[in-house]
Design a protein around this nucleic acid. Structure first.
Lengths: 376, 376
DNA sequence: ATGAAAGCGCTAACAT
DNA sequence: ATGTTAGCGCTTTCAT
């Protein structure tokens, strides 16, 4: 393996001479630089090198890689030996040019906000990378202007740099999802198309309402009857969805919700204030929150008032962030099955890129509850 | 802009007919599929389309993009108009094939460990993506087998998928750094080559010892004299480096260190145990820790014993994780300048990939101290 | 089952 | 300053 990678092989030279006189010059210059540096830059073997070593034509080698069934067993073996001997890997650029596919999936990478506990992306991206690998894809990260988010997508599409996109921030009213759809750019969304139920693109999402319902049932099961909700502002579709998990469960159990809900910004300070207000005015014994950030804010208020989470007041967050995992006492939290989301997303991606196109049905995945000290 | 992107343009058709009869078939088939789907797949314009529209040769268009100084002003303008009119972007695959460069930087993406507070990567990767964009690069993420980490690198190198790598986990005894160097694969490391000071590759790193020294001086300045160290096991070079910041500062101020240090695994449980042991046996009034994970472990012990961080005992962590930011009371922590690291890494990358190669000197960056309630 | 020829879209070299 | 020619390494007809 890779035996000849650092040294000029005869086949490389022969190939150059054989197919065109001009190339000799090119390669000679390459090797001259090489000589200066004592050891040359790596000149990877090409299909032609493999073909020569195996004593077959270039096309046969190509077939051996892309359509092995076409070859006779002994020929196939000879080719495979030559491939192994030279450590041959097809040149991506050439293959991409020819097949008009990059085997790259683009994803805009926005950073987690400072001062919050919402670092989901690291987990999701890792799962995505793993799944993509299994499917023969790689993940290309890119950034975009704040004032013109679509420009980043546009550039990559037009330069045929990626085959498709994964869009993660559909909850922001996704201007890019609409743009991508309009421009017929293949993409899969992590997140429902809230504004457009008939959206044509594949998606996978986590059932936030179910997660919050689970959390609410958990605290009710521990004897709490006055369960408060600390969630996001009304314009957040995800926030309203999660909230519905709380309100539906409370109604179902015949428990009161009046005065027990707050809708605030997703910051520690807001969660803290909301908890203080609710404790004073509605006397809840449990808090279910739309995010770990808000839940940590609630913990701040309990901390300030000398109340012990899990003993005096139950608190449940959402996202199972690192903060939830490491905070003293531990924060019970709803955990999104991001690994499963990645599996669904990549499956949809594969279907979308396959010929003929295979439509992957939308999937709504169920989160789980990780029980820790704040709501044992 | 992008006016003709969704519709067949005359120039596209002409181009196809003009340059080869074979292509007609290909494009016709393309359009037949298009008809079935009501609206066709996007056929991006090529250099030839721009050339025809501008009334110049393909080479002139190429020059307009890559060497505009060569053109006469009016020609350049005409070409640029045509580029804008068609929404032209050079095809990456073709350009990559020709120039033997992908303008892609590979980075292995390992997930943060669950149950720790060490989610640095999200911040670093984002900065890296931003910096790369400014330099005309994109970041390609990949995963690798656990048992054979170099295989992932090898595959990308051999298929010429990336121009260089960014290596972030040099502290693990970096088997891949050695491999990359040996195979003359361009790469830049975030992290010093601890085992080989003469390593030829560029790198940038954060001065952990300076950060810990800063933290130690901070608590000493607040009147603490018995300052304990909770760090990693002795085989961690980074851990020993950070520890030296503590021990040197203590010695410098004539303060005792004996019995005041623990070397444990990087887990909450270990930090918690170490703190309990140290409190019992050495009675420190302050803890400086090698990581936020260990610091959170220390907070656990204080929590259990009814001690108030920042009032009874000072605690400082390392990394300024989200947990440090949101934990009630707040955790004072040393913050790595990851944005600056990314700037350095990309600068080194550019130098390394430039012709002639420009060697970027190694840079050791100084972290800062973020003061919060645990050590005010 | 294997080989020959063509060309994907671009840029480097040379010619004008 | 602009055009002409060739070819990067691969796959896709088509012919054998």
């Amino acid at each position: 393996m890779r035996r000849n990678l650092g040294e000029p092989t005869d086949s490389v030279r022969t190939r150059a001479v054989a197919c065109c006189p001009h190339a000799v010059g090119t390669i000679k210059r390459g090797w001259r630089v090489a000589a200066t540096q004592r050891r040359g830059p790596v000149v990877p073997p090409t299909l032609a090198d493999v073909a020569e070593l195996a004593g077959v034509s270039r096309q046969t080698v190509s077939n051996a890689l892309n359509n092995p069934a076409l070859l006779r067993t002994d020929t196939l073996e000879r080719v495979q030996e030559a491939v192994a001997e030279l450590g041959y890997q097809p040149n991506r650029a050439a293959r991409n040019l020819r097949t008009r596919a990059s085997h790259l999936v683009g994803m805009r990478f926005a950073p987690a906000q400072e001062g919050t506990a919402n670092a989901l992306m690291e987990r999701f991206v890792h799962s995505l990378v793993e799944e993509c690998r299994a499917a023969g894809y790689h993940v290309l990260l890119f950034a975009a202007d704040h004032d013109d988010i679509t420009s980043g997508y546009d550039e990559l599409v037009r330069s045929t740099a990626v085959d498709a996109f994964v869009v993660t921030d559909t909850y922001l009213g996704n201007p890019q999802a609409a743009w991508l759809e309009q421009n017929r750019v293949p993409f899969v969304a992590f997140g429902r198309p809230w504004d457009d139920p008939d959206a044509g693109h594949p998606w996978a999402d986590v059932d936030g309402a179910a997660g919050v319902a689970m959390a609410t049932r958990h605290v009710i099961g521990r004897g709490h009857t006055r369960v408060a909700w600390v969630g996001w502002r009304k314009d957040s579709r995800i926030g309203e969805d999660r909230r519905s998990g709380w309100s539906a469960t409370m109604r179902e159990r015949g428990l009161p919700t009046t005065g027990l809900a707050a809708r605030v910004e997703d910051t520690i300070a807001s969660g803290k204030e909301a908890a203080a207000m609710l404790l004073d005015e509605a006397h809840p014994s449990a808090f279910v929150c739309a995010s770990d950030t808000l839940a940590m804010g609630v913990l701040h208020t309990l901390h300030d008032r000398g109340l012990v989470p899990g003993r005096d007041v139950a608190v449940v967050g959402f996202d199972d962030s690192q903060a939830a995992q490491v905070v003293p006492g531990g924060l019970t939290s709803v955990r999104q099955p991001l690994e499963e989301v990645a599996v669904e997303v990549v499956a949809a991606l594969q279907g979308m890129l396959a010929r003929p196109r295979l439509v992957h049905p939308p999937r709504l995945l169920t989160p789980s509850l990780v029980v820790r000290g704040s709501a044992p």
